[in-house]
Design a protein around this nucleic acid. Structure first.
Lengths: 230, 230
DNA sequence: CCCCCCGTTGAACGAGCGTGTAATATCCTG
DNA sequence: CAGGATATTACACGCTCGTTCAACGGGGGG
């Protein structure tokens, strides 16, 4: 509502408020929310520490302003990408557009509950559900009884991998927060197993039927799903 | 190496060092690592703030001691569970045993890189790879060309859902960090879509073949995998 | 010309933090 | 009971943090 400023401005000379906001996003993405001080934000923005409080009142409101701004930018990219073609892979969509900085910011703020981030995740799930419906209609994706649940799980798995990007980098050698690696060959070390699971699953026909049966018969008692007393 | 103390002790009277460690784990799990102060740990343990530093030297070493302890407990539970039967689902294994507190602790410390946690995740991936191999040998799971990659992705997705437990709770109504809900019916709202994906995948036969082909032909250029210019 | 306004500065304050250090309580051993 | 080691406390130091506030400077209207 209050973000009447243009979302994409030249990086050179802008209003000090925008420079402070961008510097705060940088600091949040790099050092985390807790280890970002007002003085560090001011130093990176090239202003005095007092100006940060003059424009945003408090660090909490600065954090909220950054959340709102990042959510707005991602929403804008989502809507433009939505016209290009459907997509349910949040990670791929985030990395295809070169906004790795926002990915790093998301990886930091997804863990603590902010209203703006929660709303953004809800929208990502809703969008994914629409994408999945389109995929089902066009015959690319299998139908499911729990459309929203499937969309939520897929989005949460993607965002979870983004949050755990340090472990992904150590285990698979690909940094999901780096922007320019959209065509990097190492991305396949994560994407190939992921898409293989999304394509074929991991269960064989017979065992998959057993699992499906266990969930279908008694959805209330799920403790016998993994291994039955063996 | 230095944890010669028994891992499971009566909760009533124990050495103050163990009480401080447990209180620190509680605080880390509840308020996060950054917002946990030595004075708060001391207050919860019922001791003076100075005793915390006397036993652990610094907050950083207290954090490391908690990491080592939690990793040791999880390792012990893993080994005992390994004899019972194979399992590749980290979340299910964590919740089946009633150590939801450790799950909440993990959800907080998985985001920042600690050596102990990194080693634990590596072991979880290695264990999952062994479990998956057993499942393939027994005909329950499909074989794959990238055994380690599949294990890593499955573990990372599970742990990612654990880290994002607040979003999971808001979207699906199940708190993955609560201990006693192993047989709670709401767990199915996460587990059923997840196991459906792991069972059937989400792609149809024809589209899954196209995706598989895209990864098999040119593993170096992956930008054409999701949507080819459409 | 003066004056006021707005963006901006830098110093200062109070609180809370981690961390040392000296003093005190507690307990086991002879 | 004595005595020393150990467990535990109380307290102070220095630091950094968020936040406040008085002052400054330059540009546009009276």
């Amino acid at each position: 509502m209050r973000s009447a400023e243009p979302l994409e401005a030249p990086p050179a000379d802008r209003t000090a408020k925008a420079r402070i906001r961008d510097a705060a996003i940088d600091c949040f993405a790099e050092h985390g929310v807790a280890d970002t001080t007002a003085r560090r934000v001011a130093a990176r923005a090239g202003v005095s520490p007092g100006l940060v409080m003059h424009h945003f009142g408090s660090m909490e409101r600065l954090r909220a302003a950054c959340d709102d701004y990042v959510a707005a930018v991602i929403r804008e990219h989502k809507t433009t990408a939505m016209e290009a073609g459907p997509d349910f892979d949040v990670l791929a969509a985030l990395r295809r557009s070169r906004m790795g900085l926002l990915a790093a910011y998301l990886a930091q703020v997804l863990v603590d509950d902010s209203p703006a981030v929660a709303g953004l995740v809800d929208e990502l799930v809703a969008d994914a559900e629409a994408y999945l419906d389109r995929g089902v209609a066009s015959g690319m994706l299998r139908p499911t009884t729990d459309r929203r649940g499937r969309a939520a799980v897929l989005v949460l798995w993607s965002l979870g991998a983004l949050v755990l990007h340090r472990h992904v980098a150590r285990l698979l050698g690909v940094d999901l927060t780096e922007p320019g690696t959209g065509d990097h060959p190492d991305l396949a070390s994560y994407a190939r197993p992921a898409y293989e699971i999304l394509s074929d699953g991991i269960f064989t026909e017979t065992f998959g039927a057993r699992v499906r049966e266990a969930f279908a018969v008694t959805p209330a008692t799920t403790d016998r799903s993994g291994s039955d007393e063996s």
